[in-house]
Design a binder for these strands. Structure first.
Length: 215
DNA sequence: AAGATGATTTTCT
DNA sequence: GAAAATCATCTTT
């Protein structure tokens, strides 16, 4: 499974010092249209403090979901699982799927309107040794390329469902924008497959799923 | 109480 | 490119 690396990996885009200094995004950032938030989250930093270890990664891939379209968990039905999607923006929606994978989402938009951004891939920044131990010692470019992988590397599971991302042990922090931001259809869904709601920057840390690019 | 489903990953050919 | 693995949640008895 080790894939041969043709080019050396670029140096980390942000230093540990920059990660430490980054401030959490304010709730107003999340209280907007889900596709706008998904696009603007690319480049921001997810930080999970566990004991003395600070696990951090830069967002390189996101997808938007909202209750008006059938790929959303909250389409038509408000069940206990998706209740957090109807709550305040800036909180984590963490759910389990396919038998072994946790998915990290960020709730957006107004209260009582279900919408969230799925975080699909992160560039590892700090705590890489701990991340590798969570991921069976895989190389750095395999640690968080995919939503299930990043949750495993970042030690994110059901305990963080509903967590406030503007403060606490799991936060999303500000960082300079990246460009160009590419746009495509979403990955791994069977409904509303044409919406151009996946946002990413090209590079070694983006997931491999197939999607149609949108100009 | 049981069956279907899945915003994935891995491993196979 | 295809399929299995695997279990919380939801839907249907």
């Amino acid at each position: 499974m080790l894939q041969t690396r043709k080019r050396p990996l670029p140096p980390a885009s942000l230093s540990a010092t920059e990660v430490r200094a980054a401030k959490p995004l304010p709730r107003a950032f999340y209280a907007r249209d889900v596709a706008t938030v998904a696009r603007e989250l690319v480049g921001k930093i997810v930080v999970h403090r566990t004991g003395r270890t600070v696990l951090a990664g830069r967002i390189v891939e996101t997808e938007a979901y909202e209750q008006t379209e059938p790929a959303c968990h909250a389409y038509e039905r408000r069940t206990p699982r998706v209740e957090v999607l109807y709550g305040r923006p800036g909180h984590a929606y963490v759910y389990f799927t396919y038998g072994s994978h946790w998915m990290l989402n960020v709730v957006t938009g107004p209260v009582d309107f279900a919408a969230a951004v799925l975080i699909r891939a992160l560039e590892p920044l700090t705590g890489i040794t701990t991340m590798r131990s969570h991921r069976g010692g895989q190389p750095v470019q395999e640690l968080m390329r995919g939503p299930g992988k990043l949750a495993q590397a970042m030690a994110i599971d059901a305990r963080l469902n509903g967590a406030d991302l503007t403060r606490g042990t799991l936060t999303v922090r500000d960082a300079p924008s990246l460009s160009p931001i590419r746009v495509s259809t979403r990955i791994g869904i069977t409904k509303a497959v044409d919406l151009p709601w996946r946002f990413f920057v090209e590079g070694p840390y983006v997931s491999r799923g197939r999607a149609r690019l949108v100009p």
